[in-house]
Structure formats: C-alpha cells, structure tokens
Design a protein around this nucleic acid. Structure first.
Lengths: 237, 237
DNA sequence: ACCTGAACACCGTTCAAGT
DNA sequence: ACCTGAACACCGTTCAAGT
C-alpha cells in the first residue's frame, strides 16, 4: 500500500503523495524548496522550459545538481511545482463581489487569469500539459466554483462553465503568447506572409490577411470570451 | 538578402523559406522526406515527442542520425513537418455543403478537426506551440475561411470565428487528451482525489467532484463548442 | 555526389566520497 | 546527517572518412 512510486509528476496521484510541508527536512537547509522553485520560475521566464538546465539552476543557487535531487525527484517534478507556483499568482476573489453581475465577475476572473499567464508565457506549455491539481490549482478551482455557485449556477453547469472557460483562456494564451507564437514584431511578417500567398489558390486567406493578424490581442481575447459567456447566458436557468 | 538562416522552425518565415519540393535531391534517395515524417509521426504516436530520439528514428529507417540531417536542419524542423502532416489528415470540405446551415457545417468541421487530433494526442503539444502556417495548415485555414465567407460571414467576423474555434478545439483537446491528461482509467482516481479533499476547505470542489470528472468527453466538447456557436449566432449580422 | 560511423559537447541523473 | 564533485548513460548535432 505504498504510494505509487511511478506516479507522473503533476498528476493527481502524484500531488496527493506530495507532503504539503516536507517533514523530512530538519533545520535550515541552505537551499529550500521555495527558493529553488522561485529561481526555476525566474529562469524559465528568461530562457524557456527547454533551455532551463539543472546545472544552470544549480549554479544560480550556488549549489550543485545533486542537491536539487535532494528536494525533487527530477526535472519534471520541479516543473510541476513551477506551474503551480504561477497559478498561485492569480488573484481569485474569495467571495462573491458586491454589485457585480455573474457575467462581470466571470469576465474579471478570466481576465485576471489571462493577465497572470501572460506574464509567464514560457510557463504556458506546463499549464496546458495537464489538469492543474497542485495546491494553488485546487484553491483556484474551489474559489471559482463557489463563485459560480454563489451566483446560482447549478453544480453541473458551474463545472462545465469552469472547464470551458479554463480551456478557452489557456488555449488562447498559449497560441498567442506561448513560445513559438509570433512575437509582436513578427506580426507584420505573418501578415506579409498571408498577403504574399497566391490569391488564386488562397483567395479567402489573402482577403482576410489584415483580419487574421495584427488584431489587438486584448480585443481578440475578449471577443472569444464574450462568445462563451453569451452561450452561458443562454444556458443559465 | 539570403533567407533568414535562424528562422524558428514552424514560423511563417521558416515555412516560407522551405522549398515545396526539395530540388537539391536528385535521383531516388534511400530515405525521402515523406518516409521520414511518416515514421516520425508513427513513433511520436507511440512514445511521445520527448521520448522520440533521432537515433530511434534513424534505426527504424535502417539509417543513421547523420542522414536525417541531410533532410532536416534538426529535430525541431522535423517536428514542424510532423505537425503539419497531421493537419493534412483533417478532412476539410472544399465547398459549401448542400443543405447544411452554417452552424451545422461549422460544427461538423470542428468535429472533424477534433477527431483527427484525438488520433494523435502526442502531437498536440506541437500543434499548440505555434500558429500552423505549414502547407496543410494554410490549406485548412483557406478552406474554412471560404466556408464561412460562403455562408455570408463578413471577413472580419469570419477571421475571428476561425481563431476562436481553432483555439477552442486545440485547447480542449490538449487538456483532455494530451500527454499528461488523466488517462480514462485514471478518471476515477481524479474523482476520488477531489472527493478525498476536506469538504470544509473545498466545499464546492467536493460537491462538484462528479461533475468535474467522468463527463463523456464528446459531450463536454460539444457543450463548450455550443457556447461558442451560440455566441457567434448572436454576432452574425 | 551522396551517405554515415564515430566522435563531440552537453544533458538528466546517480552515487561514492566528503564534511 | 546532510551535501556534492565527479562520473555515467544518452541526447542532439557535426564532420571526416567512406562508397
């Protein structure tokens, strides 16, 4: 009945096996988990997940790679903590805000989530890879669900709304801001690329070139979110 | 005026620099690009992007890693072709289908896209990483845009609808089917995990445990897609 | 002219030896 | 009892030597 040792880092079984406060560490270790995760996030923000090296991280902490393995089973596990660390930055209200309609409150929540992940675009591949069930992910889910329930959503609709909106925000963010997305200065290149296509073969794409690129991202984000909220409005009892 | 040599594989500039039919290869090489990409896709389907090794791929092709570099500049470039290869499997209608409302046609298109990427869950991280502007991605975008235009969508709305729906499908698929998503047999574990949380701390999550897990995925997919389409219906002139 | 064995630099991970 | 230098196996990539 030992906890599954091969649980995938980031999976529910794995998070469940993680001690909330690692009791095996006594005294004040020279590097603690929080410092490692903070520094890892800083480096991921700078160079990306791929380019982050455990040696690089260890050097930045004035330590060695072997030391990291005293706190984390491996790179994947470390990255799962980095992802949850970012979710901890999302400001999720703890109670139903006064004088806001459900729609305004949900819009505000989705917006706060979006703005947080935009600050950490290189972390997006980690967030998209799995359903976030780390400590901060759980708290955020709980607060958002009870917000919806507080607005009178039936449990089932609240659950589905949460999934739909979460998917929308993450899906939008990674495709617009993730590593590999066109950088702002490349947007004009993408437009030129669409324009340079043969209009005989690509009539619609060349005609829509200006609408497919260069649209202010906030606006595009709000447009798609608005579609989802329109749909939810219709689904509400 | 040489083509940017450091263009990121998969980016517009990079695809633009790719010759449609590599003219530098004369005669019949023992391994051609198509065979490499097909085999790479097969291996990615089996073991995932991370675990795919160029040595593994070379062995499967009875070749050596150095040979692969005669056809691709590196692993990233190879993977960009794998991603576009999958987009080539999506059946996108070439003209407005008879007797279908725009909503039915769009629903059908999103569904076809969803079913294709579900067959290649390990490829999802590649699709999500960048706006797909490879040859097949371009053709799919063109056909879908002209479908919407054919139904009378204004150009701008068509472009935004395409982006919103594309984001929804990919975002949903990677979070439900991508590597790291709970496997079907783990769904019950995720439910037990939610249920096992302290109801005092997580009242909403424990109450919604059954609605957050085990929902048939087709149904959940259609629900969220329906929301977007409801919104589009409202936005149509 | 095209292919490739063998090497290179470097990665994640481990462990015996330090303090 | 805790930390870590140094090594290990293996990765993506390169190039000189083959045919």
């Amino acid at each position: 009945m030992t906890p599954e040792p091969s649980a995938v880092p980031g999976s529910p079984a794995w998070w469940a096996s993680q001690a909330p406060a690692p009791a095996y560490r006594r005294g004040r270790p020279p590097v603690d988990v929080g410092r490692i995760v903070d520094m890892a996030l800083k480096l991921v923000d700078e160079v990306g997940v791929q380019a982050l090296t455990l040696r690089m991280l260890a050097d930045a902490l004035d330590s060695g790679t072997a030391t990291l393995y005293r706190h984390f089973a491996g790179k994947d596990e470390l990255l799962a903590h980095v992802a949850d660390r970012v979710l901890g930055e999302v400001p999720v209200p703890t109670e139903v805000p006064d004088g806001l309609s459900w729609r305004e409150a949900v819009e505000r929540g989705a917006d706060a989530f979006y703005r947080t992940v935009r600050r950490h675009p290189n972390v997006l591949p980690l967030l998209v890879a799995q359903v976030p069930v780390g400590p901060h992910g759980l708290v955020n889910r709980e607060r958002t669900l009870s917000l919806l329930l507080g607005y009178g959503f039936p449990v089932e609709l609240a659950a589905r709304a949460l999934t739909a909106i979460g998917h929308y925000v993450i899906g939008f963010a990674i495709q617009q801001h993730g590593p590999g997305a066109p950088r702002p200065e490349d947007e004009v290149l993408l437009r030129d690329y669409y324009r340079s296509l043969d209009p005989a073969t690509y009539p619609a794409t060349t005609a829509a070139a200006d609408d497919l690129t260069g649209v202010p991202l906030e606006e595009e984000f709000r447009f798609g979110l608005g579609l989802v909220l329109d749909g939810l409005e219709k689904a509400r009892p």
